[in-house]
Amino acid sequence: MTRVDWASGHWTHEPVEAHPDGDALVVTAAEGTDAWRITSYGFIHDTEHALVAPFDVGTAVEVAFTGDFSGDFDQAGVFIRTDDENWIKSGVEFSDGLLQLGAVVTRGVSDWSVAPVPHWAGRRITVRASRSGDAVAIRARVDDEPFALIRLAPLDPGALVEAGPFLCAPSRPGLTVRFESWTVTPADETLH
């Protein structure tokens, strides 16, 4: 497991503030930030705060974080970006009054899947994206519990892809997330 230096990534959109705190990076999102393309809502939002670095085939990126997710659609996790129209975000999002675990896969237009995880509130969440062949397998866990598969999505094996931690605050100012770690490992050998 190789720890990624926060300074080695670049922001897709600069946050309000980002500062180191020991080994962690504490980031505050701008109000009105989000990532979405068209489906059902008709709009395009391309204002997420994602700190990304190259994401090669045969590797996995893992991000651990904590935060007070209490505003509508507060979100954080891992962002995987090929270009403006092809990206994936996965992690937690506060929706319908509780914390949800899910993923948005965007290939021209976005989709969205979530499942409630209210018992994860206030705990350390880890999201792991493993790139192998023509796919990315996304897993998540809380604290030191076992990882659970969230999503298996197509990802062009020839594409230049970047990935890393992200956060968005579509409805309020002041969302601050403490990213405790960002690491790269070999890709997972099995899907399940």
Score class of each variant (00 low, 15 high):
residue 33 T to Q: 13
residue 71 G to I: 04
residue 7 A to S: 14
residue 169 A to L: 12
residue 125 I to Q: 06
residue 138 I to D: 11
residue 163 A to E: 04
residue 145 E to V: 05
residue 175 L to T: 03
residue 92 V to C: 04
residue 177 V to S: 02
residue 120 W to H: 11
residue 30 A to H: 05
residue 129 A to R: 03
residue 27 V to C: 05
residue 192 H to K: 11
residue 31 E to C: 07
residue 174 G to E: 06
residue 4 V to A: 14
residue 133 G to S: 11
residue 82 T to F: 03
residue 53 A to H: 12
residue 89 K to Y: 04
residue 150 I to G: 07
residue 24 A to W: 11
residue 54 P to H: 10
residue 129 A to D: 00
residue 123 R to V: 08
residue 71 G to P: 02
residue 153 A to H: 10
residue 178 R to A: 04
residue 81 R to F: 00
residue 181 S to K: 02
residue 153 A to G: 05
residue 139 R to Q: 13
residue 91 G to H: 00
residue 83 D to M: 03
residue 13 H to N: 15
residue 149 L to Y: 06
residue 77 G to H: 08
residue 21 D to I: 01
residue 133 G to N: 06
residue 53 A to L: 08
residue 146 P to D: 12
residue 110 S to M: 08
residue 41 Y to C: 08
residue 87 W to N: 09
residue 53 A to E: 11
residue 149 L to K: 08
residue 120 W to P: 05
residue 25 L to A: 02
residue 84 D to F: 05
residue 101 L to V: 11
residue 59 T to K: 01
residue 5 D to T: 12
residue 31 E to M: 07
residue 70 S to F: 04
residue 86 N to Y: 09
residue 154 P to L: 13
residue 100 Q to T: 07
residue 187 A to W: 02
residue 173 P to N: 04
residue 127 V to H: 01
residue 141 R to N: 06
residue 128 R to H: 01
residue 14 E to Q: 14
residue 186 P to G: 06
residue 108 G to E: 12
residue 84 D to A: 14
residue 5 D to V: 08
residue 101 L to D: 09
residue 128 R to N: 02
residue 88 I to D: 02
residue 106 T to I: 04
residue 5 D to E: 14
residue 11 W to S: 05
residue 90 S to R: 01
residue 120 W to N: 14
residue 177 V to M: 11
residue 62 E to M: 09
residue 180 E to M: 07
residue 43 F to I: 15
residue 153 A to Q: 10
residue 6 W to Y: 09
residue 167 L to R: 11
residue 130 S to W: 02
residue 189 E to H: 10
residue 98 L to P: 08
residue 163 A to W: 00
residue 16 V to A: 14
residue 169 A to G: 14
residue 163 A to L: 04
residue 35 A to C: 02
residue 90 S to Y: 01
residue 127 V to R: 00
residue 31 E to N: 07
residue 152 L to C: 02
residue 148 A to N: 06
residue 65 F to A: 08
residue 81 R to K: 15
residue 69 F to Y: 13
residue 59 T to A: 00
residue 103 A to I: 04
residue 187 A to D: 11
residue 80 I to R: 05
residue 115 A to G: 15
residue 68 D to W: 13
residue 68 D to C: 05
residue 184 V to N: 06
residue 108 G to V: 09
residue 150 I to P: 00
residue 173 P to A: 14
residue 35 A to V: 01
residue 75 Q to L: 11
residue 126 T to L: 04
residue 78 V to Y: 02
residue 15 P to G: 09
